[in-house]
Design a binder for these strands. Structure first.
Length: 345
DNA sequence: AACCCGGGGGG
DNA sequence: CCCCCAGGGTT
C-alpha cells in the first residue's frame, strides 16, 4: 500500500502538467477550476478558467455579477446549471459567511453545485484535508489496479470505490496524492489504449496481470438518445439590425440561455411536413446538433420584419449587443452561416 | 435507482 | 459510430 502511494507521487512529480489552478491554494480559484472541469477536459476548460479569474478575481466579484454575464462567459462549455449554481453559491458565501470561503469538506458540500468529488478536491488541495477524490480517472485507475468488476455507476460501486480510494489515500499529503492519481488516469491509465508500456505500476496492477485491462472499468449502459425537432422563426429587422431572442425558462436544455421563437416536433414526419410549407422561402438553414442524450434537428427560417417590438416574449437585441446574451452553440452555429445576419457573432 | 443536463475529441 | 471527460441535481 505504501509502495503504491510512493510510486504514484514519484511519477506525478516528474510528469505532471503545468496547469494554472495548480499555482494556488486559494479555495476560490480551486473551486472555480473544479466546477469548470466537471465532465470537461482540461484542454477545453482552461481558457474558460483564465477568463473567469480575470473577470472575477474574488468570490465577491463573482457574487456581484449578473447571471446573464456569467452564462455569457460560460457559453459553449455546456452543462449550464454549473454556471447558475456557481453564481448562487458565490452569493451564499457572501451573504451567509461574510465572504469567507468554507474551509472543510462538510461545509463545502453544502454549496450548490459542490458534490462529494468537488468537496474532496477543494478540501484537500486548499486545506490539506484527508479526503480522497473519486472522479472518472480514479474509478478507472482503481478498477484496473485492483481488477474490480463492480459497475462504477452502480450505488454499490460508488460506495466501494469511495471506500477504497479513502483507504489508500496518502494521509500525510492528500493534496499531492489526489492530484497524482487523477493525473495518472488522464495521462497513462487512459480510457482507451492505456499506456501500460509506460506505466510504473504494472507489477502491482491486477488487471494487467489478469489481462482484463480492456474490460475495466465496468459501466452500466444508459438509455437511448432522444430525437428532437425544432423549427425556428428568426425575426430580424435588417434596417435596425435587430434580432429577436427568446429566453429559455423551462427545466430543459439551455435553461436561461437565449434562442429564437420556435416550435418543437417529436416526430420526424410532422417536422418534415411542416418544413414543406417553407419551401418557397429563400433564407432557410438546416442544422443537426448532437448532445450526449439528445439529437436535435433544427430548421431555421429567416423572418424579415420592420417592427421594433413583436411581443413581450421576444427580446429585440442589437446585433452588436448580441455577445452579452448567452446563446447555445446550435444558435451560434446558425448565426455564423446565415449571410443575411452579418457579423453577429 | 433512474434520469437529466452540453459540447468536444479520441479511437 | 461509440465512449469519455477533474459530476451534481432532481425525481
Amino acid at each position: 500500500m505504501v509502495h503504491f502511494q510512493e510510486t504514484l507521487i514519484s511519477w506525478y512529480l516528474i510528469h505532471k502538467r503545468d496547469l494554472p489552478w495548480r499555482e494556488t491554494r486559494d479555495p476560490y480559484k480551486i473551486w472555480l477550476s473544479e466546477i469548470i472541469l466537471q465532465q470537461t477536459r482540461v484542454v477545453q476548460g482552461t481558457s474558460y478558467y483564465l477568463k473567469f479569474i480575470n473577470e472575477f478575481p474574488t468570490v465577491k466579484d463573482l457574487s456581484e455579477s449578473s447571471e446573464q454575464k456569467i452564462l455569457s462567459l460560460w457559453q459553449g462549455l455546456g452543462y449550464y446549471s454549473r454556471a447558475r449554481n456557481l453564481h448562487a453559491a458565490a452569493k451564499e458565501i457572501i451573504k451567509n459567511n461574510e465572504g469567507v470561503f468554507p474551509s472543510n469538506y462538510n461545509d463545502l458540500l453544502k454549496l450548490k453545485g459542490v458534490g462529494p468529488y468537488t468537496a474532496a478536491a477543494i478540501s484537500s488541495f486548499s486545506f490539506n484535508e484527508a479526503k480522497a477524490v473519486v472522479d472518472g480517472n480514479v474509478f478507472r485507475v482503481l478498477s484496473r489496479i485492483y481488477d474490480i468488476s463492480t459497475p462504477i455507476n452502480s450505488s454499490q460501486g460508488v460506495k466501494d470505490f469511495q471506500e477504497l480510494a479513502q483507504s489508500i489515500l496518502n494521509k500525510s499529503d492528500p493534496a499531492t496524492h489526489n492530484q497524482a492519481i487523477m493525473e495518472f488516469g488522464a495521462l497513462v491509465c487512459t480510457p482507451k489504449a492505456p499506456k501500460c508500456n509506460k506505466c510504473p505500476m504494472t507489477l502491482e496492477c491486477s488487471s494487467f496481470k489478469n489481462d482484463t485491462i480492456k474490460m475495466r472499468p465496468v459501466k452500466i449502459r444508459k438509455g437511448t438518445v432522444r430525437s428532437r425537432f425544432f423549427i425556428y422563426k428568426v425575426f430580424y429587422n435588417s434596417p435596425e439590425k435587430l434580432l429577436f431572442l427568446k429566453k429559455r425558462k423551462a427545466k430543459d436544455i439551455w435553461q436561461n440561455l437565449y434562442d429564437f421563437d420556435h416550435q418543437e416536433f417529436t416526430k420526424k414526419e410532422l417536422f418534415d411536413e411542416h418544413i414543406q410549407t417553407f419551401q418557397n422561402e429563400k433564407h432557410t438553414v438546416s442544422l443537426s446538433h448532437k448532445l450526449t442524450h439528445q439529437h436535435i434537428m433544427a430548421f431555421f427560417v429567416l423572418c424579415p420584419t420592420i417592427k421594433k417590438k413583436i411581443n413581450k416574449e421576444l427580446v429585440p437585441v442589437k446585433i452588436n449587443e448580441l455577445k452579452t446574451y448567452p446563446i447555445p452553440t446550435l444558435i451560434k452555429k446558425y448565426l455564423e452561416q446565415e449571410p443575411e445576419i452579418p457579423n453577429s457573432v
